[in-house]
Nucleic acid binder design. Structure first.
Lengths: 368, 368
DNA sequence: CTGTTAGCGCTTTCAT
DNA sequence: ATGAAAGCGCTAACAG
């Protein structure tokens, strides 16, 4: 893991649990098939009640060292593995977090999952993944299907109407929403400051001497994308006096980037492009270069997100960087807080401020 | 999704379940908080027994249309959401697959997860994710922690000794192992033909006129990586008469690629590089180019995996392509087969043959 | 300290 | 067709 991600902070307290029995030095070299014996078998073998077995297994202090040892060795002998499902039914704790995402495609989501996983791993939590492949109804379904198996939900669905989302969020379960603000619903949320990010991107392009900007937009139903367009428009008007800058349609996909490059080529005149995400920026840039355009000399490019790939393209891509994995980790941390203290209603959304990351794709030494 | 991935095949039969009640046209717009009422509440409200409620909710045919309607509307009114955890305890079915991976970093794993998710989604299965962050003991732990919550396990851990792995796999649970062959354990597996892939890479480089090859190796404890080195060595000896070709150490990381570039620069003479994975190839290539080396003219490059990024670098990276997402999907499909028919012992491992994908980074028109 | 007894929420015989 | 009751495997009072 790279330095400075802030993800390797130490253990935190609070909602965190690794069942004691799982931490035994069991290495599965017993003779019996694992996953078969129940706690009753263990109790019988150790000649104690299931209650004592349970206590011993879970490290409760109220057990004689002697019986504890009997139970433990019986468990070992039987290759006992606790049935976590049953345990959570009884304790009303699953030590599992449900993660609901709109898509699993692309580095943005994999980075987010990585961040969530890292934070979850620190606390001994498991992740139940659910991806909606787009549809709103499926999202609702996915969310409902998590009932009784998770202690909390991490939901990201920037393209689902907030109202619909709010209506389908189980109010009994702690939820953190990523990417959409759900004010007044009592759910915590964490949002990216897209507008400011877009503005900063335009500002940078202008500082590099660009005067004819274009924006490659994200999906029309995506809140983040919409805010980026808005920021772009306002900034070009304010900074360049351009009230009707070119906005090319897009959908965060590679294809959209390629198509945008085609449009740019056909039109000419544009000397700076701000894409709503990195993947479109990269696809567009590669296409432009192959068509003989010099980047950044003829057209400067800047993206949004800072996915890992941005560093590997030639020229390296400037971008409005979000520490994506960090974002996921923060979301999980907030969720854990909410689980720890269910009474605390969520306050203001957490804000994530994208950071201008200047690399070669936009650096052409205009005004410094 | 790109064309030709083979991932969008239609529904298959077999182990597939979406609980009926979840498919109702419920849209969560009721007045009561969801996730609160139990089936007893529903039964009481509908004035029937819980048994009947259960039957109605699950679409059993032995219910009067009248009572079914009463139950359903009661459920709707109460905003009832079934407690899946309790259901699986009772049915011994969780409709969940446990996925155990060694790492979540990099595009290889995110692609694999995407493939698994796609296939799982088709069958209405959920994914319980678990990542070991390296340690073997953690792997064992993660596997045991899945007991009672999953119907089957998808395990990938090329850097864990096969014996240890086999000892810790629950024999009661269907398991498909990716990337390591566990013959004779009764577990299905699916492996990449690394040796042949490496050989093909060398063959291609030689055909392009390269005569002094180097290999950037993967981790020393990774089976896939080891096979790639072996293939590389054998091929260079056979094809080039080079019995002791340069093998640079690596660990599949970006840094390793950069370090390898340094070594290459210091040494000179090498005119073709085969890296054990794409990320090292890309990092190495970018570093070489920035140092003034012409790729592929002075040094031809080829990687392994075909991660999405390989298409975006300049020059585009040649690679031994694996359809990674496909691999994940296939693994899940095999697992589902095993769940469907637990009696069938696993046969031979599935083989995945990497495919030579020639892009600009290795194309220099030597012998055609 | 230990055993007995209830559940957790749901499905499922087995009667009726 | 419906209901009563017995679990699924585990934990948690409550007594002893």
């Amino acid at each position: 893991m790279g330095p400075g991600t802030g993800l390797d902070a130490g253990y935190e307290n609070g909602y965190t649990a690794v069942p004691a029995v799982l931490l035994n030095d069991f290495r599965g070299d017993g003779a019996v098939a694992s996953g078969t014996a129940t706690i009753r078998d263990v109790a019988r073998a150790a000649e104690v009640s299931v209650a004592s077995a349970s206590r011993a297994l879970n490290g409760h202090h109220s057990v004689t060292p002697a019986t504890r040892e009997r139970v433990l060795s019986a468990a070992r002998a039987l290759n006992y593995v606790p049935h976590i499902g049953a345990r959570s039914l009884s304790t009303r704790r699953s030590n599992t977090i449900g993660v609901v995402l709109p898509d699993l495609f692309g580095e943005f989501f994999s980075e987010i999952i990585r961040g969530i996983d890292l934070a979850a791993h620190r606390r001994g939590l498991q992740l139940l993944l659910s991806n909606m492949h787009g549809s709103a109804d499926e999202t609702a379904l996915a969310i409902r299907a998590m009932r009784g198996r998770v202690d909390g939900l991490l939901v990201m669905s920037p393209d689902i109407e907030a109202d619909f989302l709010a209506a389908n969020l189980p109010s009994a379960l702690p939820v953190v929403v990523m990417g959409a603000r759900l004010d007044g619903t009592g759910h915590a949320s964490i949002v990216i400051d897209n507008h400011a990010g877009a503005w900063a991107a335009v500002e940078h392009l202008v500082a590099q001497g660009c005067t004819r900007l274009a924006h490659i937009a994200g999906p029309a139903d995506n809140e983040d994308a919409l805010e980026r367009v808005r920021g772009f428009r306002e900034a070009t008007r304010a900074l360049l006096g351009d009230a009707a800058p070119l906005v090319l349609p897009g959908d965060f996909s590679e294809d959209a980037g390629v198509a945008a490059a085609g449009a740019l080529l056909a039109r000419g005149e544009i000397d700076g492009v701000f894409a709503a995400n990195d993947i479109m920026a990269i696809a567009c840039m590669v296409t432009l270069i192959e068509a003989g355009i010099a980047v950044p000399e003829q057209i400067a490019m800047i993206g949004f997100d800072d996915v890992p790939t941005a560093r590997f393209v030639t020229p390296r891509l400037s971008t409005m960087a979000i520490r994506i994995a960090d974002l996921g980790a923060r979301a999980l941390d907030r969720l854990v807080e909410a689980i720890d203290d269910p009474s605390a209603r969520a306050g203001e959304p957490d804000h994530v401020m994208p950071e201008l990351l200047v690399r070669a794709s936009s650096l052409r030494g205009g005004r410094p």
